[in-house]
Structure formats: C-alpha cells, structure tokens
Write a protein that binds this DNA or RNA. Structure first.
Lengths: 147, 147
DNA sequence: TGACAAATGCAAATAAGTTGCATTAAGATG
DNA sequence: CATCTTAATGCAACTTATTTGCATTTGTCA
C-alpha cells in the first residue's frame, strides 16, 4: 500500500499563534497512518495498538494519542465517537460517509447516505441561530454475524 | 412538574433471563428523572450531580450511574455520546430528535430533522445486511453565544 | 410492624486519555 | 559522514469517567 503525505510541512492557516514547525516522517506516524488507511472502519487507540503489536515495532500508547492529535490538527485524521467507551479515528480523506455500529460486537463499518443533510444544516442555522459546520450520523443495530 | 411512572413494575420482554423484579420509587430515582425531564438537552452524570447538589439531597455518583443503567434498561432513558469525554442521558419519551453540539462551549440542544432517515435504515439493511435498529444524528458547530 | 430484596454509599478498582520530563532520532547542514 | 537542533518518543504518574464489592439502609408488602 502506498502512503502519501507522511511528511507534513509548514502550518495550516488556522494555527495563527504557532511558530512554523516541521513534521517528521517517523516510524510511529507511518505505521499509524498505514493501519488507519487499511481498514474501512474507524479504529480505537486500543485497536490500533493491537494491530501494531503484531508487527515489527509498536509505539507507546502516549505516542499514538499524540500522533492522532497532530494528524487531526493537520486535518488528515477525523475523530468519531459512538456510545461505547473509546473514541475512534479514521483517515479524513475517505470521502463523506457515515457509520453503522453493531450494538452487540461493537464492530463499526462505513456507509454512505443519500439524504441531503447539508440542507438540514442550513435550516438549523436559521431556526436555531446555530452555525452547523459538520454533522455525524450513525446507525445502530446488528451486523450480519450478530443478527 | 409532574413525574409519571416513577414506580416501575414487572420486566420488559427482552429481559428473558431475569427474575421478576419490583422497582421502587426512591428519592434518587425521582430526582434524577426530574432533572432529566426539566431540560431540553441531554445531561452528563457530572451535570446531573451539579444540579442535585443545589437541592435538598444529592445521591452518590454511583447511585446516579446505577439508576441511569436501570432507567435505560427500562427504556425510560436514552444514552448519547458526542466527541467529548462523558456520556449524556435524556428521557426517552421526548420524541425522536437529534442534537446540535457547540464545539466551543460543549452545550448541547435538541433539534428535529425533516429528512427520512427511516428509509435510509431500510436501505442499509438491504445493502449491508445490517439490521439497523435506531440512528443518531448530530450537528457540530457554534452556538449563538460562541459564534 | 417486620421481613426481604431493592437501592444506597463508600472505597477501591478499571479504563481512557493526559502530562512532565528525560531521552532518542529525523533531517538539515557543513 | 559527523554533528546539531528540535520533533518525536517512552515511561511513569495523574486525571477523569465509570464500575464493582460489600456492608448498610430503606421501600414495600404481607
């Protein structure tokens, strides 16, 4: 699998106060991006660590948390959370989609949805004076294995 | 404010293995339901405790967690979680609605949405062989105060 | 009123995520 | 290639959210 854009340079426009900063293509960053890119589902830090433990080198959990924070700041990764304990992370460039969550085995998969939720966002902005920037939609139920 | 159905008897159909069980109208349950019924937004355990501390008697946090678990099992309360740390709880009988979450001050409010998400659920069931039972939709953005 | 089980409180245990600090190692430079 | 600078890492300790065990209290119902 090809991983692009591991090295990240410069600073994004919204980091106004930050000093210019050079990001490095480290082992940890590379492997975390690899794991997130492989699956078609968002992973928890625990799951990321489990996968990496089976490979050559596994970073410390602190490193994983910090890398994810950096990748989120750089808009390369998105954070999602369902009604389980842990947060989940997925690559940001996988296109807009939503999730189905199995309430039994906790497995998560991506889905795309037809409805025009962008229109809803505009309506909310009007009626609630709430400036909706993004949305998240999850379907909970039973996956084929647990049904 | 009137609180109905504080005493809960019998067992719901899906509690197959459980022995019949009588629920009691205790101070803790009464006050937790009162707090959840008052607002139009889901509350975290911390927020529930904060409100109750200002009143006559405040239950222990363990009790709050346990009462919420019981109320959820009885389908009287729903649990939701956004990308903050703590889970939030709201009365189940407030009609189907969704949430707007302020990414700045973390405030949460209810909204109702037009789109036909039930239709989406059926489609998912077909294409993903995933039996979607319920869904949750959140809009993230800035509330009037933070915008 | 008295018995019995539901409900509670407290303290200790988990689990998820964070922070401080000393150390390591990308990557730029000579 | 050796060296320097600082981003990135690892470790241990910490915070916050939630759970569990156990002894005690308290609704309910006979």
């Amino acid at each position: 699998m090809q991983i692009s854009c591991i090295k990240m340079e410069g600073m994004s426009s919204d980091q106004s106060k930050e000093v210019a900063h050079t990001y490095r293509a480290t082992q940890a960053r590379t492997s975390i991006i690899a794991v997130l890119t492989e699956g078609n589902a968002p992973l928890s830090v625990g799951e990321i660590l489990d996968v990496l433990k089976k490979r050559k080198s596994c970073p410390n959990k602190t490193t994983v948390y910090r890398q994810l924070a950096t990748l989120i700041r750089r808009d390369m990764v998105k954070e999602v959370q369902f009604t389980e304990g842990a947060k989940r992370y997925e690559m940001a460039d996988t296109g807009h989609h939503h999730h189905v969550v199995c309430t039994q085995c906790k497995r998560v998969e991506d889905v795309t949805v037809e409805g025009d939720l962008a229109a809803e966002e505009k309506m909310i902005a009007k009626t609630k004076k709430f400036k909706a920037l993004r949305h998240s939609l999850e379907f909970y139920g039973l996956c084929p294995k647990c049904a």
